[in-house]
Amino acid sequence: MIALTWEPVVELATGLALAWLNFVTVDILMGLPEAPGVKGAGAIGRAVERRGGDLAGGYFMGNIVCSPDASAGTLLASAGYWCLGGPHGGLLAALAVYLGNRLCADPGYAGTLGALSATALVTLYDRVLGFDPINFVAGMVLAITTIHGIDHPIASRIIGDMARRLGRGPRE
């Protein structure tokens, strides 16, 4: 008989909330909703706007797709933590994200800082809360699904609203 408990659900929900707040906050503060970094990101932003979304949120989504940002940093840092068994896995992931950023013509602040802050968060998640870090990785997958996998216009309006509140609305 399979014993069902609430513990994995609580761990997953906590991981989802921490990962979502981490990458959305870092990406907004680093200016992803302000302007597209490359032409493809601009095209995605305008396509989301044409479908009833928000331009700032659309630029945010386009920039996420076109270069490793804090969402990639959060996912890789938590996976690195789990694979190597400690925060040094997150440090290795931050290096990988930075090199990936430079290959994608991105100065690398959002991705690298997102990976470092995610390393700190997943360390707290594991060592202080005593949760399994693999649930943080799963939470991050669900977190990015809420932005890119359910409804682009609604997600872009939420992101655009947050960006304007944090003083990072579109510049053009």
């Binding site: 040094h88 440090l91 290795l92 931050a94 290096l95 690398g108 690298t112």
Partner: peptide, 12 residues
């Protein structure tokens, strides 16, 4: 930035 990131990650 990014010097310590490369130093720490490269060491690991």
């Amino acid at each position: 930035f990014p010097t310590p990131v490369i130093g720490a990650g490269g060491t690991v």
